[in-house]
Design a protein around this nucleic acid. Structure first.
Length: 311
DNA sequence: CGGATTTGACCAGCGC
DNA sequence: GCGCTGGTCAAATCCG
């Protein structure tokens, strides 16, 4: 399974290529993919419980100029996409449109295309599935990270127990299923490798942690990790990896689900690193706290300066 | 010995 | 209805 397929599972990646962005030398090789958009104005960040940095990060993660027509202009197509009939071809929720308008700042045309294609491909599955699962399984919001890493199971500050592994169609790499080991925390994640680029690990999180990171709580780590001031957050960015976010519409969950999205969350962090330095970077963004990315100094820790958008 | 991992079986959803 | 696939379960196994 390649990345497209991998993500397609969650986001319905289409024929175009998210992976192209990756392999094309995307500076950060990172994309926040606010494909689902069933959220408020901060999209992924809000999903992650990050609320204070406004659109700066969203802007920041825009692709390089080659793929981003205009770094400063909002992208209306996102809204179009999000509110496309495909997506709304589900039992409409009162919050759908308002939430979906959210992430428009964060993505560019390329991303929108990808997202549209994903959704096109996935819409039928999702919607049909949603109808059926509406009564039974409650799907949690999902988002996926695409991370360049040599290790499959990336350290994200939480403890996971593997509960399954499946061979994935069209991919030589199996998909692993993990559950948060914390009792009463039903967060799951799936980890799989892109077969187009085996160095890329696709990690898909499902659900929200209802507890602090056990690693953060460790004194030894706490002393090392830069938890001071404004860098606190519930979320971490993969340093070298490509980030793809798919906060799935699980419309079958309707209102309760939407509400959950709008709540501050203690979502997992994802790390694309295997080295200590990167881990420290990552941890800092994983720490609970008010403001994330208050200054460019922080941003520049992880984002090339040219990726930073003037605010 | 307890917790984590492995792995085959099972189930549900979906397309044909 | 059948087969394929994703997702989960749970017994067996591994490991510290």
């Amino acid at each position: 399974m390649d990345i497209q397929e991998a993500v397609e599972m969650d986001g319905g990646m289409g024929s175009s290529s998210f992976l192209d962005h990756v392999s094309a030398g995307f500076p950060l090789q990172g994309i926040f993919d606010f494909a689902e958009g069933e959220k408020s104005s901060l999209g992924f960040m809000e999903l992650l419980g990050v609320q204070d940095f406004g659109s700066s990060l969203l802007d920041m993660v825009q692709p390089p100029p080659s793929t981003a027509p205009s770094s400063s202009s909002p992208n209306p197509t996102v809204v179009t996409k999000i509110e496309s009939p495909e997506l709304l071809n589900q039992p409409a929720t009162p919050n759908s449109s308002s939430i979906s308008s959210a992430s428009s700042e964060a993505v560019n045309d390329e991303q929108v295309k990808v997202e549209e294609q994903e959704e096109d491909q996935q819409k039928t599955k999702k919607q049909l599935k949603a109808k059926k699962t509406n009564q039974k399984r409650q799907r949690e919001p999902r988002f996926a990270f695409m991370t360049k890493s040599e290790v499959d199971h990336l350290e994200d500050g939480y403890r996971w127990r593997k509960y399954g592994q499946k061979a994935v169609k069209d991919s030589p790499f199996p998909r692993s299923y993990y559950r948060c080991t914390t009792v009463s925390c039903n967060v799951k994640k799936r980890v799989e490798r892109s077969y187009n680029d085996p160095s890329i690990v696709v990690t898909t999180y499902e659900g929200q942690h209802n507890h602090p990171s056990p690693i953060i709580q460790r004194p030894s780590l706490a002393g090392v990790l830069p938890m001071n001031n404004s860098v606190g957050s519930n979320f971490a960015m993969p340093i070298q990896g490509t980030i793809s976010h798919y906060n799935h519409h699980h419309h079958q969950q309707q209102q309760p689900f939407v509400n959950s999205l709008l709540q501050p969350m203690n979502l997992p962090c994802n790390y694309g690193s295997t080295n200590a330095a990167a881990f420290l970077h990552e941890r800092r963004f994983c720490n609970p706290g008010p403001a994330l990315f208050k200054d460019h100094g922080l941003l520049q820790d992880i984002i090339p300066s040219h990726m930073l958008k003037e605010e």
